[in-house]
Nucleic acid binder design. Structure first.
Length: 471
RNA sequence: GUCCCCUUCGUCUAGAGGCCUAGGACACCUGGUUUUCAUCCAGGCAACAGGGGUUCGAAACCCCUAGGGGACGCCA
């Protein structure tokens, strides 16, 4: 059997983490079985579907690298096909016209709730033949009344739901448009979807869809219902509930592979392994091993994984990735050293690309202001002599890492100070107090002139902050 | 309310009846390395929801209870 999976979002908002994980698992399953993965845009709700949302989905999938094997399918372009099927169902006697008003439906529902029953359509029009087709009406599917629907979910196991729990769902609205359960069934069938992988909020729809499939004598795909991802209040992640859109993660400086890696570990694991390349995921992922229980989204762990990815990234790729963030900070790369060596030194000090851009900032341009604590601790009158000596020393010393280190050590020795007493003020002088690598390599990259200039500024700063103190 | 699904450290998870005195990871805490921060290293804290069975033996199997989530739309 050829494996074919699909990701079928509705373009009614941002593409969030939950959707992305569903997409990822579907994609992984297709890839590992040499199958196909396709994207289907479920835009039958013309009221709420927007082009912006479609673009966000497309962009998000592209950013993540979850490529589809066919052009995306838009349900809004397949209405003829849906209508054909609805008419067929009508002809077969598996569907019927219903002109119940919304008011009546509401009343019925309320009564049922008052009786503590599950609200369902009562089948009022099921046997009627006198519905006026010139008046507004809908078409409903004749769901079987007896028996039950049973299916083996790859993740959840055997699930059985009695038909008496189901009602006659609307398959064509009064405006003539088809509804979700109908379109899903038709599309999965037409597209030859072998495995339906989706969130477990769809478990309840599955028996309805199977009944529809049976009425159409279509083959029934395998189902795999993924547990939900919940917010830290253990409420379901939804569009208005802490559900950050994927593109925001891009903007925040996350690597797509890191996001994918975090997501693949939500509900799935492979021994004690935490880091998986996309290649490894494809190889090792197993739908059968996906957990049944929901998991809570943990931003701290995402951050950790992102940091791991930043650390293992090669410097040239990282430099490319960080450039947009550098730009956003208004940093002019022409006013300092090459970016790559700077990245190499700073990459273990950043959890996101945004962080990375920030810690690179002091290499370019001048120090606008010192970090308060660092300045208070290190830019004191006591530090002035050392800085003055360094200023002089650096004028002519060899400008290599080694040479810089020797210069500092020379000052330390001559002034009978500890290494820290000299190096720390220097560090604050040239970095402003930002986290930075070894002082010699940092100074080396910043460059002789700039380092000396910054030392001078630090001395001025010391004088200004301690006007009372004589030299 | 009804139906469906779920339940191991705070969080993600390992666990397929004896390997479990329950393992790993994030977070947190303590120490070490270090020239700041980070990295790195060593250590610590911390869980089988509760109750009944089944079994020589149960975190694992069954039942009940409790708790959580989902569905119950002319949304998807």
């Amino acid at each position: 059997m050829k494996v074919k999976t699909r990701f079928a979002p509705s373009p009614t908002g941002s593409l969030h983490i939950g959707g992305v994980r569903t997409a990822l698992f579907s994609w992984l399953y297709a890839k590992q079985n040499n199958g196909e993965f396709v994207l289907r845009i479920e835009d039958t709700d013309r009221e709420r579907s927007t082009q912006e949302s479609v673009d966000v989905i497309l962009e998000g999938m592209a950013w993540l690298g979850l490529s589809a094997d066919e052009e995306p399918i838009y349900q809004s372009q397949r209405f003829d096909r849906y209508n054909e099927i609805i008419d067929q169902l009508l002809e077969q006697g598996d569907a019927y016209h219903c002109d119940c008003s919304r008011e009546r439906l509401d009343t019925v529902r309320q009564e049922q709730q008052a009786r503590k029953e599950k609200p369902k359509y009562d089948g009022c029009c099921r046997q009627r033949t006198d519905v006026n087709l010139n008046e507004p009406h809908v078409i409903r599917f004749k769901n079987p009344i007896d028996g039950s629907v049973k299916f083996d979910d790859i993740i959840k196991g055997s699930i059985e739901i009695a038909n008496r729990e189901l009602d006659d769902l609307i398959i064509r609205r009064s405006d003539g448009s088809p509804t979700y359960n109908l379109t899903v069934v038709v599309d999965d069938w037409d597209m030859d979807i072998s495995h339906v992988i989706r969130g477990d909020d769809h478990i309840n729809n599955t028996p309805r869809q199977i009944n529809l499939l049976k009425a159409l004598k279509a083959h029934i795909p395998f189902y795999a219902h993924l547990p939900m991802i919940l917010g830290d209040d253990s409420k379901r992640l939804s569009k208005r509930h802490g559900a950050t859109g994927v593109l925001q993660y891009d903007l925040d400086g996350f690597l797509p592979e890191a996001l994918l890696n975090y997501l693949v570990r939500l509900g799935w694991s492979h021994q004690d392994q935490e880091i998986f390349s996309v290649k490894e995921m494809v190889k090792l992922f197993s739908l059968e091993q996906v957990n049944k229980s929901p998991s809570i989204f943990n931003p701290d762990k995402l951050l950790w994984i992102n940091q791991e990815y930043i650390k293992m990234q090669n410097d040239s790729r990282l430099a490319e990735l960080v450039k947009p963030f550098i730009k956003m900070l208004g940093i002019d790369l022409n006013r300092g050293p090459e970016l790559e060596p700077v990245i190499q030194l700073q990459k273990e000090r950043a959890k996101t690309l945004k962080d990375l851009a920030e810690v690179c900032a002091f290499f370019y341009g001048t120090i606008a202001e010192y970090e308060k604590k660092a300045a208070k601790k290190n830019l004191k009158t006591k530090a002035k002599k050392g800085l003055q000596a360094l200023y002089k020393e650096f004028e002519s010393s060899a400008w290599t890492q080694e040479g810089i280190k020797k210069s500092i050590e020379g000052v330390v020795e001559r002034q009978q100070l500890s290494f820290g007493q000299v190096a720390l003020p220097l560090r604050v002088a040239i970095t402003g107090g930002a986290p930075s690598p070894g002082i010699d390599e940092t100074a080396f990259l910043i460059g002789r002139d700039q380092v000396r200039k910054r030392i001078l500024n630090a001395i001025i700063f010391i004088d200004q902050s301690n006007p009372e103190t004589p030299n």
